[in-house]
Amino acid sequence: MTVIDWFALRTSLKRAAPALALYTILLILYFAVPGKSQLIAQILFYAVLGQAFNIFMGMTGYVDFGYVAFLAAGAYGFSIAILLLSGVGGGWMFIPLGLLIAAIIAASLAGLVGAIALRLRGAYFAIATIGVNEGLRYLVEGLNILGGSIGLYIVKDMKELVGREGYQLAATTLADMLMFLLAGVAVLTTSLILSTRMGFALQAIREDEDAARALGINVTKYKIAAFMISGVLGGALGALNWALKGGVVEPAQVFLILYTVEAIVIVMLGGAGTLLGPIFGALIYIGLNFTSNVYIAPVLESAGIKATGLHLIILAPILLAVIIAAPQGLVGAIRSRAPSRLREIVV
């Protein structure tokens, strides 16, 4: 591993280009469309969630129902950094330090859980990860550590560190820009994995783990590596979205399994294991949601039909239809049907 694999780097950049282009469009829209920046930030959050989740689930075929625990670990890590700096000072240092601690905690959690749970297959793994998520939540609440069920409130501390205006900026535009940056990192990481030996190994694992092992692939190593990468990205996302942007880290929120479900939905809608899948998945999911909520529901409401909260009832059948009819998702379906030139772009 002494020489940089230029070929792999070039292919991966080429692979990443369409996804990066899409994120750039979103970035332009963020500033260009007045009053919609937070809608775009929301799409972005779910796209990154899908992107990070996809690295593990999409590439290995393992379902981590407890994925949200990594986001929680990141949110707590970021808050811990702020509480450490609080009273000491350090100003804007809290963001890099916070992200660093978030990444370290998320990586340790992923390493630990991976070393234990990744010895299990399929269903057993899925069950074990739910256990990890719930176990951690009730540990925080039951031992009354890290603020217990009340959670950590860090807005005041952030205001003390960088001032009121500084915090205002940090919690809005800056947080969103960092999220865009994270999206780019996630895309590049994914494409780099896909273009290297690791990508082939993971694909082999997804197809047939025993055969992969028989071929001499170090199955455990690659699985844990993918798990940790996915976990660290999730941790950074949790830190940005809940700690920096939200200012409150409360167990009932950050360990909510709903976020894992949403990640699964987004990845499955868009296409597991693809680069563009999560972006399309998030666009469809949030687009459907926002449209029905903000534009359709009020119209129905004025016609006397109560239409709130119906999106899940619609989403579940769509998810079932996708799994039965198009298990490779939207992007996967296009890829398997499209002419080869187009296929190259979409992959």
Binding site: A272, I313, I323, P327
Partner: peptide, 17 residues
């Protein structure tokens, strides 16, 4: 006969429904 992933998600979706 689908991969485990599919049944995990499908049963989940039935539950939500």
């Amino acid at each position: 006969d689908a991969p485990e992933l599919a049944t995990l998600i499908a049963t989940f979706a039935i539950g939500i429904l």
